[in-house]
């Protein structure tokens, strides 16, 4: 599939920013993990963050959700500031869906309850209505028959698809996917990435951290290359993968091809 099929959204709606990141600095001790990041994500856009391990891409996603305090700069979701430790964060987080690398389903709840917990508890939605939507989402990711199963009865790929449903049911404005296939066996990576590709096509705004370069190329409207806590380069996937402009990006991309 070509990239033009996938990305009408970014071209059509360039203006409305979902997330604005301005000069974000994140330090652990003296170590600057993020060193002045500026980035905006528009509605319907799929931004893929790539870069070497430890470049700060996962940390950036965690900061966007207020899981990590930041030491400088601002993050706003639709103009509302995301501030670690603030009460307002609970409201904002409902609009940000996040899926992690580790299987983070709640082991003591069935698949269905995992998904309906937050709409019922947080959004105070009707239980029957939440369950109906949960079943629709499960059907969409091909897991309708697993609604009554417990997470331990699922494969890694199935767990991640459930985790995606669990975020989607909150009807988030943006989905943050943090290396969601990194812990999966290779044969399960595909089923999860297909779901994400499907979301991208339907216009879900996403920020994705991944090491799957082919997937990044297929799903992204924009590739953002991070290294050493800074954005080194950003471009359309076609441009970035074919003609990286910086030497660092070129070197990074070379590590994915084995040459003798």
């Amino acid at each position: 599939m070509t990239e033009t099929e996938l990305k009408p959204s970014a071209a059509e709606i360039p203006s409305e920013h979902i997330i604005d990141i301005n000069g974000v600095v994140k330090r652990f001790g003296d170590n600057a993990i993020l060193d002045g990041i500026d980035l905006s994500v528009s509605k319907g856009e799929v931004v893929v963050l790539i870069g070497p391990s430890g470049c700060g891409k996962s940390t950036l996603l965690r900061c966007l959700n207020g899981l990590e305090p930041i030491q400088g700069g601002t993050i706003t979701l639709h103009g509302e500031p995301v501030i670690h430790g603030e009460k307002s964060l609970y409201k904002i987080r409902q609009k940000i869906g996040m899926v992690f690398q580790s299987y983070d389903l709640f082991p003591h709840l069935t698949v269905l309850k995992n998904i309906t917990l937050s709409p019922i508890k947080v959004q105070k939605r009707d239980k029957a209505e939440a369950e109906r939507q949960a079943m629709e989402l499960l059907a969409r990711v091909g897991l309708a028959d697993k609604a009554k199963s417990y997470p331990s009865e699922l494969s890694g790929g199935q767990k991640q698809r459930v985790a995606i449903c669990r975020s989607l049911i909150m009807d988030p404005e943006i989905m943050l996917l943090d290396e969601i296939t990194a812990a999966l066996d290779p044969e399960m990576v595909h089923e999860v990435l297909n779901v994400v590709l499907d979301l991208a096509k339907s216009g879900t705004t996403m920020m994705i951290v991944t090491h799957e370069m082919a997937f990044a190329q297929a799903v992204a409207d924009r590739i953002v290359f991070l290294d050493g806590g800074s954005i080194i380069e950003q471009d359309t996937p076609d441009e970035f993968f074919r003609h990286p402009k910086t030497e660092r990006a070129e070197r990074f991309l070379k590590t994915f091809t084995y040459t003798k």
Binding site: N65, R93, S102, D104, V122, M170
Partner: peptide, 15 residues
């Protein structure tokens, strides 16, 4: 209890 149990709860908007 794994840390991500806390984090994924919070990121779902739970208080």
């Amino acid at each position: 209890i794994p840390r991500h149990q806390f984090e994924s709860s919070l990121s779902l908007g739970l208080t």
